[in-house]
């Protein structure tokens, strides 16, 4: 009975129909079946945050969700957030401040940081650290990441609405 199950979902706004094995997690579905390799896979048990995506507007770990659980959901990946321009300023701030080195954590960091800025437009450094606490970066030492998120929040605050 562990036969493939049909799912239909939206990925970055595009309708997708697929047959998936129940054991296939959403991260692997995005990467292997849809070739959206911006969603990274680190630990596969929820602790590193590299696989973070948005489901119906809220961030989740795609390694802890089965593809079949995404039935009827709207999934947004780093490719979607990049292409729409939603996080162009945040990406620029990451570049300017060297908030990435190898880049492995970066898609997850960007999605998580954008989630914070959506919910709390003017976070202090403590709030930034808390929100990013579930995302590992093994390169930067985090300071530059916190700087980039803080700078983006400031710039967005100064920009006329």
């Amino acid at each position: 009975m562990s036969a493939p199950v049909p799912v239909s979902l939206l990925v970055n706004g595009e309708p997708i129909e697929a047959l998936v094995l129940p054991r296939l997690n959403l991260a692997d579905f995005l990467r292997e079946s849809l070739k959206l390799t911006g969603t990274h896979v680190g630990c596969e048990h929820g602790v590193c945050g590299a696989c973070t995506v948005r489901i119906d507007g809220e961030i989740v770990r795609s390694c802890l969700m089965l593809a079949v659980q995404a039935e009827g959901a709207s999934v947004e990946t780093i490719e979607g957030l990049s292409d729409s321009g939603e996080i162009a300023d945040l990406q620029a701030a990451f570049r300017e401040r060297n908030a990435l080195q190898c880049g492995y954590c970066t898609p997850g960091m960007l999605i998580t940081a954008q989630d914070l800025l959506k919910h709390l437009p003017v976070p202090d450094r403590q709030a930034i650290r808390e929100h990013l606490s579930g995302n590992y970066c093994r390169c930067t030492g985090y300071q530059a990441i916190v700087d980039a998120v803080e700078a983006t929040a400031k710039m967005r605050g100064e920009r006329p609405a």
Partner: peptide
């Protein structure tokens, strides 16, 4: 039973448990 999967999925991915069937109540 599968609810949020935030404890069950890590345990299954680490092969600490291998149930035959998941009943998704989500």
């Amino acid at each position: 039973i599968l609810s949020g999967g935030q404890s069950l999925m890590p345990a299954m991915n680490l092969r600490l448990i291998s149930p035959d069937i998941l009943v998704d109540i989500g």
